[in-house]
Write a protein that binds this DNA or RNA. Structure first.
Lengths: 187, 187
DNA sequence: CGCCGAGTTGAACTGAATCAAGAAACGTGG
DNA sequence: CCACGTTTCTTGATTCAGTTCAACTCGGCG
């Protein structure tokens, strides 16, 4: 509980009342490796934060899956698109290591937004943070080669090498597994 | 004035006091074709909305420019990254048709956020909207071919054909001008 | 008219995909 | 603790989408 409050109050301080209100609706769960938190086609009705563990979001096309993102401790686990629009998610969220997650439901969050406007500030800042990260990722597709993207990714998240498989990383970079293997081979 | 209020109140209603406060700090400008609204390397201290006209954001690499986005009426003109972090922008914003823009400065907007928390809700919703659009764009790089990306773009924004040059569109799609010309040639 | 920027077309080249096969690592049951 | 099957990773040969460079066309405009 404390952990999540601490995490999100790094975006902006939360009043004692707000903290209490959040704590009272917060759900905390342990989920095992392999667990599917959100299934493709379902509506994402919860916003979780990954307290401990590792996860990824992926898209399925022609029978193979393509990683959209990886989540480390402190990252949000949700399909933004589905959560915001309440339309079916195209993303599947898969837990890749035994994890602890904490979060709130769509209704509860909106209740919080209504009763404690200060949460809108936090929501805005968090959205801005993820927007900027996504912008950087889009840029990398537009001007970097496969090899450049790989090296930059590993520099930013060296833990990925231990945690994610070659195939997961390759699809995240938008390249084939074989190509990534060859990139690794040279130097 | 009215126009911009109307636009952003589509995200969420604004109280009369909020409307007044916003109106009092709003700047409205006419800018000619060719005008550079934000220069690469400068800090983006204003958030404008394009009321009428057409513009694009681009990045310069090895002497050539690569389009990052196009803005139509109602779209935001700013480098989100620079505006939010107050770091130098890597984006240049160029007006492509005589335009009317309206907006607020960084300081004024934060003043609004502070005094009228309701604006945080609007800020969050607008950021979410752009986040989802960007997500779609990133996806398109991850699994679509150049030709698929082009046809989808044109389907979504047919006006682009009249407004933007082949070179601008090609760099936006992450392909060379020649390739786009060939894509056009066949069917 | 002649120039100029924008778009097209051709030919050679290249980074990455695909298909196919094999090697290594990994976990589970005996 | 080993043996087996499964999954993950590597390597090779071939193909293909898209780049690059270069020459050429077209429509406007001074």
């Amino acid at each position: 509980m404390l952990w999540l409050l601490n995490q999100i109050s790094q975006f902006a301080p939360i009043s004692p009342e707000g903290q209490l209100a959040l704590a009272s609706v917060l759900v905390r769960k342990e989920v095992p490796k392999g667990y599917v938190l959100l299934e493709h086609g379902k509506i994402c009705r919860h916003l979780y934060m990954l307290e401990k563990g590792f996860a990824r979001g992926y898209y399925t096309q022609d029978g193979r899956d393509i990683s959209l993102w990886f989540a480390f401790e402190g990252d949000i686990l949700a399909s933004y698109y589905s959560f915001v629009t309440l339309k079916p998610s195209y993303t599947t969220i898969e837990i890749l290591e035994d994890s602890t997650i904490a979060g709130v439901s769509y209704d509860q969050l909106n209740e919080l937004y209504r009763n404690y406007p200060e949460f809108n500030l936090i929501g805005r800042l968090m959205t801005e943070k993820y927007f900027i990260e996504l912008e950087e990722r889009t840029l990398s597709f537009q001007f970097q080669s496969a090899s450049e993207r790989y090296h930059q990714l590993i520099e930013k998240h060296p833990q990925l090498l231990q945690k994610a498989s070659l195939g997961h990383i390759a699809s995240f970079l938008g390249i084939s597994q074989e190509t990534l293997s060859r990139i690794r081979a040279k130097k």
